[in-house]
Design a protein around this nucleic acid. Structure first.
Lengths: 206, 206, 206, 206
DNA sequence: ACTTAACCGAGACGGTACGTCGTGTCTTGCC
DNA sequence: GGCAAGACACGACGTACCGTCTCGGTTAAGT
């Protein structure tokens, strides 16, 4: 017969009462709700806990600060829809992606993303999260497409792909953050138009 | 009655002790100093007053809140250098201006401007101030130049001047805020290069 | 003309808004009220502040902890009536004083005093305050009377005055704290009777 | 069904794992240790459980609150030495008992007893326990002796035995709780001396 | 030997109060 | 009437325990 030490847990299971998923979800939902309603710095852990029907300590047990909590909440929103759309040409593919992004930025998602980039100005981990969890995954695919096009001579290769991407998306984020003009599809068209003219040789597009 | 920003009182003078310019300046300097040191939301009126050797009430007497104070401090920085550089061509003029902006954005000014746009995400009056006091005055001139060029047929006129400006400056602000890549002159070159190619009607540039 | 440093305050006056006596009194009253209602350890600073219509910080500004606050509140109660009653003989004087004490101990004062001695078991400064502010001032007079009587041969002088006082008052405090029997005048009579019999020679009293 | 203090189960035994005596003892020991170290109100169930290497729920399963736990811990200390000493005379017997009590009160036991009476000021069940489990058992015997003596005419019978006992022990508890003077044998001598003089009918003692 | 049920440790849960800090307002005496 | 000082009511911070709960695992009595 095998004798084993008495307090060994079977697999990779922590002892004690397991974490409540209900509390977790309620907290994340409340965070998003209050964040879109009131903005990042009117957001209080106290308020979130109350709104979620949860003790403050339960929030602090799992998230060290407001930023980490907002990041997590944001990710529940972001992670599902990750993939780049299919389309016949590079141009079409990028264009389609921009239109999707614009739709997102015009809604509550845009408010939250703006709030987060804003908060990121004084909380580096917030910006870091935005870069690694939101921006980079989406850029990775785009970058590959652009680089491939550059190799094939469809796009000028004297400008790095990353720079091209900043030129495409920068104006959108600029308007999102400063709010001097709407983030609409007219902007997307113009950006894309100009960038394409810049990309291509002379006037195959126009 | 005393109106806020002007330091010179109008003719009809109110009774009582006049406003202390020394206090005013000390407050604004302290604001900028603490703002660049600690960021916008670690910034407290209490801290500013203490650092400036001033009573809290004196701050509140002249500025309704942190945002207004930061805006004013920001303007003492901004107002001096307002005019657009002279240059032989439109292209040169715009390019020169972009280089200047980049220099600014890479320093403390960039940090403060980022902090302000960030704070603006939850404080509309902050964003409003940035637009009317910083952005718009600088764009006004640029817009005129661009529009003139469009009329003369040097630039395509199917895209509004404002949109063109967002395409030029957006990528800079994008990098400033998100920090995924430096705001350097290479970016400026690339943006301008592409935009110029896009500007030209057909292919006289290429 | 005399030049003097600019920020000198005239007498012994601190600068700034003076302390609010209304707040102070409201806090002390609330403390006593809640203390008699709920006992020492159900007493919370939070509760006191709320009951007094005062910010928590105002309480903490002036009292470092619950004990100090309770001591102060207790003293507002105690300080007025300090003097020992007049009476023809030592015996009468002591007896009268005991009766007065009993009346006090049977009321709310007794509850508070009990609570304080109780709290004192884990908070030395509380006990210290009771000794120096309540007990000792009252004993000082009593001790003198007893010592005088001892010198005159009315009382046996082989027992220190302090010990005699503990014998007189100890039983009262014992019952107050343990509550196994009432602190009534019958007890006072008995204590005094026995102590007198012990004091005096044989039977001049009886 | 299991009834609390007895460690021996009656005939009809409940199914399931029996109570762990090891846990029980560890908890009680930790309680006493922490109680003497830190006082009653710095004592926390959380701390006791941790110190005893036991789950919090195990504590709460057997004791409804801190008071009950402390009482039980106290009783493990008290129950052994329960009986009144033998001695030739009533006086000797009482005197001997007082000396024993004083020895106890001067040590850790005194601290704990003080803490408990202190806690009792806001927790009636604590005081109740002290009366029924500590005080009364010890007084029962003393009372019988005194009453017998009164019947025989050795002591004045106009004062109830209970009152006499309060006069004997009150001063000790008074000093224990207030701490203005040591609980030493000099006090015991004096108390007993006076009380004896008071006991005697007329003046056979003096 | 197998089932049953109360025990055990661990530790998460919803709460409450802690003591601190910053908010924006107020109240002083001096300038 | 402006000013430095600083008290005020308020409300959120992050922490510590409360007493309750839910896990996996243990231990005997009753089948």
């Amino acid at each position: 017969m095998i004798v084993h030490p008495p307090k060994r847990l079977p697999k990779g299971r922590a002892p004690g009462r397991p974490r409540s998923d209900q509390a977790r979800e309620s907290i994340l939902e409340s965070t998003l709700e209050l964040l879109t309603e009131t903005g990042f710095d009117a957001l209080s852990i106290e308020g979130i806990a109350a709104h979620a029907g949860v003790g403050k300590a339960t929030v602090y047990r799992w998230w060290p600060n407001k930023a980490a909590l907002v990041i997590d909440a944001f990710l529940t929103w972001v992670e599902p829809e990750l993939h780049f759309p299919k389309a016949p040409t590079v141009s079409e593919q990028l264009k389609l992606q921009m239109r999707r992004l614009i739709t997102l930025l015009r809604g509550e998602f845009g408010v939250v993303l703006g709030a987060m980039i804003g908060a990121g100005q004084s909380q580096p981990e917030m910006l870091e999260a935005i870069r690694t969890k939101w921006l980079e995954p989406r850029r990775r695919e785009a970058r590959e497409i652009v680089e491939k096009a550059q190799l094939r001579g469809e796009l000028r290769s004297d400008i790095p792909a990353d720079t091209l991407l900043d030129i495409l998306y920068g104006p959108l984020y600029f308007r999102l953050m400063v709010g001097h003009a709407p983030v609409d599809s007219a902007l997307a068209e113009a950006v894309f138009d100009i960038a394409s003219a810049g990309f291509a040789g002379s006037a195959q597009k126009r």
